[in-house]
Structure formats: structure tokens, C-alpha cells
Nucleic acid binder design. Structure first.
Length: 435
DNA sequence: TCTGGGGTCCTAGGACCC
DNA sequence: TCTGGGGTCCTAGGACCC
């Protein structure tokens, strides 16, 4: 392996300014908005099915509760320390996220909403001291108006702003805002960033790099670029350049259409009968169709999959999937459910305890560009779907549903500790007001 | 007893064609 | 013994992200 100390010659004054605003422990912070008694107390939020820890408040992190850890493994610590536990409440978090993003959008012309709790802002043209003041202003406004604490990192590339954000969160000296514009600061930050904490370098790649004694982001940029390209491909090369201050990733200002759309769930208890799998896949197919209708998309194919519980070594394992074409692009629940049922019947094998089933719609295209190709039948069924969507949005999900989805739903997922949907569900809103 | 869900991009390898 | 070669397109699987 070749080493080089040569760095890009533009590092003394890097012009571009990209800010990454990230909500702190987002789901936990959402729960606190409506229950201020939780401030300062340890909180965790669980994944679907109450399976794993997916968000921890700072206090919960200090107790040694790890991200992604199965709930049952840390139950003891949780009980001993009186940690408050919540099932995930995505309708609440989604609504709070939207409010945060609306505020952020007022602070820059160019904004990329990167995930439910993160956005990149283009802050080009500011002097460094102005950036600091501006970021403080952003931070205070989101806290005051929504009640969500955020951290802000600024850098000349997205990858550096990610690193800055990480430091802003972890090191108290930054007080929530870290600006990395001068090469001397960037270098120091890269030295303080473990290789596995670099955006785009995951478990496998960091393990590989550590074999070569590349342990920090700074070690990484000392390596010969050719070696990186050869061993880590274009993605590795891009990370290298971004860390050196050469921007390779632009802000995506217009969200692109989805290429696929998936709905899948684990079961509360293992499922053995084909009837239960049929009901659940009908339910998820109906939901995924609704999702693509909301986005004005049509699908031309689907993938149906089943899995047994791979963690349970004592039981025999089976997993399978099947790809099915649709005769023409559609977002019609009835047609999609029908085809999905064909799929599940073809991959079902008797004698296994199934843990999970799901559907992925593929070959998505915009409905408005396809209409000239569609037949009369499409417009009639489209009207039916529109009516169903209107009723369900007014009177609640699944007010009208397809018979194949079933009624008993023995297979439904576990969600025992869910908070009220304070902002989106009428009955819950009333609850808050009456408190 | 109990281990999430939904996405993207890249790459290698197979199918197919001339 | 010995069975072309190069291009394109598609797909499955891997790795990663939040």
C-alpha cells in the first residue's frame, strides 16, 4: 500500500458551506414535547413489534444501553433505572418532523430533507462568524417553536458537515454547533473521528480498513487514492475526496420519485397457517398500494417474501421470495392484493414457523405520465380507490378495507407502550386538551 | 419466551446479441 | 484436450443509511 501526505491545495480556505441540522435523539425528544416531566429522565423508544432499542435519550445512553439492542436483553437495566419505554409512534414523529423542516426551510433557499430528523442547508456566502450566529439563531428557533433540540455541523462538503455534526453532539465544548472551515480544524476533527463513524463507511468496510491500521478519518485520507479506488470502489473514492474538501455530493433539492416501495412486518408470535399469511400479506399489499397512490405512482411488478426467525437456531429455517409482473402498471389495491395472494401461495411451505412476510412494489412510474396508455377499466377502478382513500382519511385507517385482510388478525404486531398521537389523531388531541 | 422497517446505490455475473 | 469476443442489459445480492 502506498501512503501519501499530499492533500488538495484548496484546503486553506474552503468556500462552500453546507450545514447539517440533526435533531437530538429525535423520537425521545418528540415524546418529551407532550410530557415535559420526561425531561432529564432516561427514555428509550422501541422499533416495531417492540423489538429493539432505536432511540435513547442522553441519560439512557449513559446507562450503557446500546443502539439496536434487543429490548429483552436490556430489560433489567431499564427496570432498575426506571427508564421510560415507548413503542414507536411514527405518525407523531412524522408530523413533528414536518414542522421542524418547515422552520428550517425559512433559513436557506436550498434545503435537502435527508431523513426524518436531518436536513442539509446551503449556507454559501456567509463569513464564519456570521455562520456561527446564524446557526445559533436556527437552533434557538427550532427549540422555542417546536421544542426539539438540534445539533448543527458545518463543512465544505456533506461528509465534513456530518463529521462536524457528530462533534457538535458529542463534545460539550461546541455547545451544539461545530463549524469546520479551516483546514487546521478539519484535520483535528478527522483525527478525532473513528473510521467507523465516517458517513458511508459501515461495519464491513471499517473492519477491512482496520486490518491495515486505518483507524481514524485522518488515517483514511493519508492513504493513496488509487488503493482506495481499487479496494473500496467509487464509493470509497468519493468519501476520500469529500473528506479532503472536494465536494462530490450535491444537495438534492427536489426529492426524486421512489424506485420501490415496501411494507413488511414481523409477527408478534410465529405464524404457521397459510390463512394467516394470506391475511397479513393482503393487509400489507393494501397498505403499500395506498402509499404509492399517495405519491401518484404506479407499479409494474412486485416481490413477495417470507422468512422464518433466523435468530432461533433450534428451529428449521426457510426463506423465499417471488417476483411477479403486473399485466399493466397499477396502484389498485384489489389487483395488487390478488396478485400478492398468488405469490404467497406459491412460496408457502407447510411445517415452518414464519416470523415475517412482506411486499415490495417495483418498477414505479408516475401515474400522470402513464394515463394515455391505460384502459377504461383503469379509470373506473381508480375512482373506487379514490373513494376508499377519502373515506379512510376522514374516518380512520382501514374503515374500508379488502375482505382478504381478515378481521381477527392474530398475527398483528406487538405495540404495547405507544404514546397518544397527540397531533394527528382527533381522539388523542382531545385527551391532551382535557389534561 | 422475546432480535425493526424502509430505502438507495453499486457490482458481479448471467443472458443475450451480433 | 482445446468450442470467440465484445458489448449491453438486467438482476440479485451486498453494503450502507436512518
Amino acid at each position: 500500500m502506498l501512503y501519501t501526505t499530499q492533500l488538495p491545495n484548496n484546503h486553506s480556505s474552503l468556500q462552500k458551506s453546507i450545514a447539517l441540522i440533526d435533531c437530538n435523539n429525535f423520537y425521545a425528544s418528540c415524546e418529551r414535547i407532550f410530557n415535559p416531566k420526561l425531561i432529564g429522565k432516561p427514555i428509550v423508544v422501541l422499533s416495531n413489534n417492540d423489538g429493539c432499542i432505536i432511540t435513547r435519550s442522553t441519560e439512557a445512553k449513559k446507562l450503557g444501553i446500546k443502539m439496536g439492542e434487543p429490548y429483552f436483553k436490556v430489560k433489567k437495566i431499564i427496570e432498575q433505572n426506571n427508564v421510560r419505554v415507548f413503542s414507536s409512534n411514527y405518525s407523531l414523529y412524522g408530523d413533528i418532523s414536518q414542522r421542524v423542516m418547515e422552520i428550517l426551510a425559512n433559513f436557506a433557499e436550498d434545503i435537502e430533507i435527508y431523513s426524518i430528523d436531518e436536513a442539509f442547508l446551503n449556507l454559501n456566502g456567509f463569513e464564519n462568524y456570521e455562520i456561527d450566529t446564524y446557526c445559533n439563531h436556527i437552533r434557538n428557533k427550532v427549540k422555542k417553536w417546536i421544542g426539539i433540540p438540534v445539533s448543527i455541523g458545518v463543512g465544505s462538503t456533506k461528509t465534513i458537515s456530518k463529521i462536524a455534526n457528530n462533534l457538535a453532539k458529542k463534545k460539550p465544548k461546541y455547545k451544539g454547533i461545530c463549524i469546520l472551515k479551516e483546514w487546521i480544524d478539519i484535520k483535528e476533527a478527522l483525527k478525532n473521528t473513528f473510521i467507523e463513524d465516517v458517513w458511508g463507511i459501515g461495519r464491513k468496510t471499517s473492519a477491512f480498513l482496520k486490518q491495515y491500521n486505518i483507524n481514524s478519518a485522518h488515517d483514511f485520507i493519508q492513504i493513496d487514492k488509487g488503493w482506495i479506488k481499487k479496494n473500496l470502489g467509487v464509493i470509497g473514492e468519493r468519501i476520500y475526496l469529500e473528506l479532503c474538501g472536494i465536494s462530490c455530493l450535491d444537495l438534492e433539492l427536489i426529492p426524486s420519485d421512489k424506485k420501490s416501495c415496501c411494507v413488511s412486518r414481523s409477527f408478534k408470535n410465529p405464524v404457521e397457517k397459510i390463512q394467516d399469511l394470506e391475511e397479513s400479506i393482503s393487509c400489507y399489499s393494501s397498505r403499500v398500494s395506498e402509499k404509492i397512490r399517495e405519491e401518484g405512482l404506479l407499479a409494474d411488478a412486485m416481490n413477495i417474501f417470507v422468512l422464518t426467525n433466523c435468530f432461533n437456531r433450534r428451529e428449521k429455517q426457510y426463506s423465499n421470495s417471488i417476483k411477479l409482473q403486473l399485466t399493466y402498471p397499477t396502484n389498485n389495491s384489489i389487483k395488487i392484493v390478488k396478485r400478492a395472494l398468488e405469490g404467497i401461495r406459491r412460496i408457502y411451505r407447510e411445517g415452518y414457523r414464519y416470523k415475517k412476510v412482506g411486499i415490495v412494489l417495483q418498477g414505479l412510474s408516475r401515474a400522470d405520465t402513464m394515463q394515455t396508455l391505460l384502459d377504461h377499466d383503469f379509470f373506473i377502478s381508480n375512482a373506487v380507490m379514490e373513494t376508499i382513500d377519502t373515506i379512510n382519511s376522514r374516518y380512520g385507517n382501514s374503515t374500508v378495507k379488502i375482505a382478504a385482510e381478515g378481521v381477527t388478525k392474530k398475527w398483528i404486531m406487538r405495540r404495547q407502550k405507544v404514546s397518544p398521537s397527540y397531533t394527528t389523531r382527533f381522539e388523542d388531541l382531545i385527551k391532551v386538551k382535557c389534561k
